[in-house]
Simulated assay, not measured.
Amino acid sequence: MTGRPRTGVPLWVLKLTMSVTGIVWAGFALVHLIGNLKVYGGAQGFDSYAHWLRVVGYPPVPHEGVLWSLRVLLVVALVAHVAAALALAVRARRARGGVRARHTTGRSRAAGAMLPTGLLLLVFLGLHVLDLTLGVAPAASPQFTGAGSAGSPYANLVASFTRPVTATFYVLAMLALAAHLWHGTVLAANDLGVTGARARRVMVWIAGLLAVAVVLGNAGIPLAVQMGVLS
């Protein structure tokens, strides 16, 4: 052993990557939530919104150009976020010598929940794309009407959430997303230099409101389908 320090990506770069990419996905979660709420306006309004996403900016922008640009941005942010998270987890484990701390506080338990909720969200994201975007069985319902402009996003959503297992998993995923967003937003604010007591309280409130909005807004949709409110 030479005692030379380990080389690699600086810690601050990993934390900054986590913060910026986390903010990108938090912003997407909020915008996606607003779009999802259009489902309560009925099939015509929801399907029109889904169609608009494909033609926004057209003809100056190619058909689905904005949509694909956002998809690429989200995929890049996701890959960077996961890579930084794994790198930080490995460094934290090495710093502890591979030994898990016996005494934990509420904050450390919340931090410890970030990895399992993140893994659950990765599984959910993959299944969600197979279900409502691509219509790949068995993730998608047998009543899937078609991808893109060929089908009805509203009908696909309702058909998917009539399945109790899918509806339950979606609700659980939204609870995991709320927890991930709440703690992740607070961590991101700290890593980006929001250290004042008043500013930190504001960020905690913002994170909490975002988490509650995700649960009430998104998780309410499969419950509404199960109760027959949406059909």
Rank of each mutant, 00 (worst) to 15 (best):
R93Y: 15
L122H: 09
P59Y: 05
L30P: 04
L73E: 05
I34E: 13
A207W: 05
A43V: 01
V136Q: 10
W182F: 12
T162Y: 11
N36A: 15
A188S: 01
P10D: 01
P153H: 05
V212P: 04
Y58P: 08
A111Y: 10
G8L: 00
T166W: 12
W182H: 15
H183Y: 15
A50W: 12
L88R: 05
R96M: 10
T162I: 11
R91S: 02
L210I: 13
A110W: 05
A92P: 07
V20M: 01
F124D: 03
L177Q: 05
A159S: 02
A147F: 05
Q226V: 05
V225S: 00
V82W: 00
L16E: 01
G148R: 13
T166K: 14
D191G: 09
V39A: 07
V55F: 09
H81K: 07
T168C: 08
A159N: 00
N218W: 14
L134K: 10
G126H: 04
F144Y: 06
L177T: 07
P60A: 14
G196N: 06
V165T: 13
T17R: 01
N190M: 12
S149I: 13
A197Y: 14
F124K: 07
G217S: 03
M1R: 15
L127I: 11
L192M: 03
A139G: 03
H180E: 02
W205R: 15
Y49L: 10
V9W: 01
S160I: 01
L53D: 10
L53C: 08
A101Q: 13
N36C: 14
L177V: 06
F28Y: 12
I34K: 13
I221T: 02
L209D: 10
P153W: 06
H103I: 14
A92G: 12
A155P: 03
A89R: 14
F161T: 01
L192K: 01
R54P: 06
L70G: 13
L192E: 00
A167N: 04
V75T: 11
Y58W: 14
P142C: 00
P153T: 02
A173V: 04
A211S: 06
A178W: 03
A155E: 09
T168R: 07
G220E: 06
A179T: 06
V123A: 09
P59W: 07
M174S: 10
L175F: 05
L119E: 09
V194C: 04
L134S: 09
L67G: 08
L122R: 07
A188Q: 00
G220R: 07
V9A: 03
A139Y: 01
G45L: 15
Y49Q: 13
A92W: 11
L86A: 10
P116F: 00
R100H: 15
W68D: 14
R94E: 11
A219D: 03
R93L: 10
F169P: 06
L67Q: 13
S19M: 01
V72E: 09
S231G: 12
A213H: 04
R93V: 11
S160C: 04
N218E: 15
V194M: 05
P10M: 01
Q44H: 15
P62V: 03
